[in-house]
Design a protein around this nucleic acid. Structure first.
Length: 691
RNA sequence: GGCGGUGUAGCUCAGGUGGUUAGAGCGACGGUCUCAUAAUCCGUAGGUCGUAGGUUCGAGUCCUACCGCCGCCA
């Protein structure tokens, strides 16, 4: 088992029709953390990511931008790669579906499936959704796509089909026999439910556009993007290659151990992909893990609301590790999670700066001060107390629990466990008061001090080793400060208590996580605004063919950000972000509205309208007639003499034949929107302007 | 509409097979120490466990209905 043990993990390949954002970063950094941990455990690990570059979208976008498709995809692919490099993602390979090695491999896969007799030619006449690249046979001509709501086109095409229907039973049996195949379980259940309704054959070629991989033996057709894209998992490790070492690589790494995906592409990965592989007589991946979406919280504080947040923003202000830690700690893996700058900074400060960073700082500083920067010798007997062993025992427990949880994709809980040790050591230091012990004379006290600081430093080392996959940059720094050299060379499988070399010299001690102040949130928000504005201006000049649905009454507060591949959520983020940047208006916009205090002089019901009141309101300069829909909430007699706030410069409007010159300001309360008039605690003069 | 999930303190979440005063972290408030990154540590803060019924000696934990949110149904 251990001989030749390998681990092959993949991200989805990202569709180049969208710009990289924090959702892509999330998927990728989760895989990175897993890959780093596996490597640290001494496992031969291969971590793949890349870009998906074919399809009609790309062809149209490139055309619209008057750019050759290849040039277009080169540019966006480089953006993805640039982001991942900036993030320090430790991918072993970055595959692009426009590379020759991929094309050859994808065609090879096609040929194998064909040889086994699972491909046939058929004709499809009906509706086609260009955006989703899907045949939607459930709707008639002129109907919108049930998937994305965009108009469908009527097409009649001769295509190649894949005999997907032949695999329903086999797939079901596979799910049943391999409960780990689809994770989490709720997704597995969905797939099973889907499968039980039966499978129809799948059209796997297109002849209406050219930007794709030619179907072997029939260059009039290109391969269906998903067949093309999915095969990357094989082609990247050498499938279909002529070179012997590439073939060996495939033998070694295939099947993949984990395909990490977003929940929107489950069907493609859990149904189509294994069916393709079965048809080609290739081994199936060990497991397909679907995470949730990253949503952008509608902040109750109504602070702001970034639409699409770029990972770069967070990285530039707080660093890579802050982003990694936040996403892995805050979000329950598998579920949707929300991202906000507030939560990010809070997490950063409390967990990283205050807890871990400060623990490191205080412990190492004391070793520097009291022991000249050499790891002190703990006393085996005299100066030993039970509290020391409690820390040791807890550390051992944490190693176990962390391992179990992390390997079960429960990153959040794994980190929680690790941090329980951080907390325990901080408390241990307060309880043992090494700074007091240091002031006392005598060998025994000296030995006691040594034991305390050794215990703290050793616990710190263990947390650091465990946290490395999540916090590669900072863990390396702490490791260095502990005087331990290159952390990635450490074998995590051997992690146990007592490995901190006695007498070892500490490195230079300095803060690893400087506290973030309030301005960091503002800085990030500002960067987002600038980027969004910039994107909006470029987007207008290079508008893509598939423009997203209009924002309508504002994008729903839960835009998925973890789009991975051809899903419907692929609308260009730039355009989506543009209209409302972050829902804020300028002060000038606000000042356009003239709000004044007025006093109600006359109030009476409007005949024939049970909700309307006719009001005469004194606003200092004049008495205005207003018609307001507040009759259900206020009696006319209760209003007379009352001071209210009105919008004074609203265009006049006629209601029930009465001209209304302004609007009364009221809160809308409850489900039925009951109006509650705005008022003041202090007395205010009539005509006062609000600003 | 069908199937599935979910609704627990301000926030994010724990709460096998029903059983004393419903938990944690963060935030808030008060206090403490001083080695440390205005950090640590301690204490407090009173959440009808979505709503209404039901089963039971006893339900957050089982059942029913309803409400809300979410997902899947090519």
């Amino acid at each position: 088992m251990d001989k030749g043990q390998k681990f092959y993990i993949t991200t989805p390949i990202y569709y180049v029709n969208a710009r990289p954002h924090i959702g892509h970063a999330y998927t990728t950094l989760v895989c990175d953390a897993i890959a780093r941990r596996k490597r640290m455990l001494g496992i031969d690990t291969f971590f793949l990511t890349g870009t998906d570059e074919h399809g009609v979208h790309v062809e149209r976008s490139a055309t619209a931008a008057q750019t050759p498709p290849q040039k277009w995809v080169d540019k966006v692919s480089a953006e993805f790669r640039g982001l991942f490099d900036k993030m320090g993602i430790s991918y072993d390979d970055f595959i692009r579906t426009t590379e020759p090695r991929h094309k050859l491999g994808a065609q090879e896969l096609w040929k194998r499936i064909q040889e086994k007799g699972f491909i046939y030619k058929g004709t499809y006449t009906g509706q086609y959704c260009v955006f989703d690249e899907l045949y939607v046979d459930s709707v008639g001509p002129g109907a919108p796509c049930p998937e994305c709501g965009r108009p469908t086109e009527t097409v009649s095409e001769e295509n190649y089909y894949f005999k997907l229907s032949a695999f329903a039973d086999k797939l079901l049996a596979h799910y049943q026999q391999n409960p780990e195949f689809i994770r989490p379980e709720t997704r597995r259940n969905e797939v099973i439910a889907f499968l039980k309704t039966g499978l129809r054959d799948l059209s796997i070629s297109r002849s209406t556009f050219k930007w794709g991989i030619a179907v072997p033996g029939d260059p009039r057709h290109v391969m269906y993007v998903w067949l093309d894209a999915l095969s990357n998992y094989c082609t990247a490790v050498g499938f279909g290659a002529k070179e012997e070492d590439e073939q060996k690589k495939f033998q070694h790494f295939w099947p993949a151990d984990v395909h990490m995906i977003g929940k929107e592409i489950i069907r493609f990965h859990c149904v189509y992909w294994p069916a393709f592989l079965m048809a080609a007589d290739l081994p199936l991946p060990k497991s397909i893990v679907a995470h949730g979406w990253l949503l952008f919280e509608e902040s109750k504080m109504s602070k702001s609301r970034g639409n699409i947040v770029r990972a770069e923003t967070v990285i530039d202000v707080l660093g890579n590790d802050a982003l990694r830690y936040f996403l892995l700690r805050e979000i329950v893996f598998g579920q949707d999670g929300s991202f906000s700058f507030d939560a990010l900074v809070q997490r950063y400060n409390s967990d990283l700066a205050n807890d871990l960073g400060n623990l490191s700082s205080r412990t190492l500083t004391m070793i520097n001060r009291y022991f000249n920067g050499s790891v002190p010798y703990p006393s085996p007997t005299v100066a030993r107390k039970a509290t020391d062993d409690v820390i040791k025992e807890q550390a051992l427990t944490v190693i176990q629990e962390f391992t179990q949880l992390f390997d079960d994709f429960q990153f959040s809980r794994a980190l929680e466990t690790a941090w329980s040790l951080v907390g325990a050591v901080n408390k241990y230091l307060v309880d043992e008061e090494p700074w007091i012990v240091a002031e006392k004379e005598g060998e025994e006290n000296k030995a006691r001090l040594a034991t305390i600081l050794y215990t703290a430093a050793e616990a710190l080392r263990i947390v650091t080793a465990l946290a490395y996959p999540v916090l590669p940059e900072s863990a390396s720094k702490i490791w260095n400060q502990l005087g331990l050299g290159e952390i990635s060379k450490f074998n995590l499988a051997e992690l146990k208590w007592g490995q901190l070399p006695l007498g070892g010299k500490l490195g230079k001690v300095e803060p690893v996580f400087p506290r973030a102040d309030k301005t960091s949130i503002e800085r990030m928000q500002q960067m987002e605004q600038e980027r969004a504005a910039q994107a909006a201006s470029t987007a207008s000049s290079t508008a893509t063919a598939s423009s997203p649905a209009p924002a309508g009454e504002g994008a729903r507060p839960g835009q998925p950000a973890s789009q991975s591949a051809h899903g419907p959520a692929d609308a260009a983020p730039a355009a989506k972000a543009a209209p409302a940047i972050d829902g804020k208006i300028s002060i000038d916009d606000f000042l356009k509205v003239e709000l004044r205090v007025g006093q109600v002089k006359v109030a009476e019901k409007v005949k024939g309208a049970d909700k309307l009141l006719r009001l005469e309101v004194d606003i200092g300069t004049e008495v205005r007639q207003l018609v307001a829909g507040i009759a259900l909430a206020y009696k006319p007699e209760d209003l007379i003499g009352r001071k209210v706030v009105i919008v004074a410069n609203l265009q006049p409007r006629k209601l029930r034949g009465l001209e209304s010159n302004g609007m009364i300001v009221a809160a809308s309360v409850g489900e039925d929107g009951k109006p509650v008039l705005a008022s003041f605690l202090e007395d205010v003069p009539i005509g006062a302007k609000l600003k």
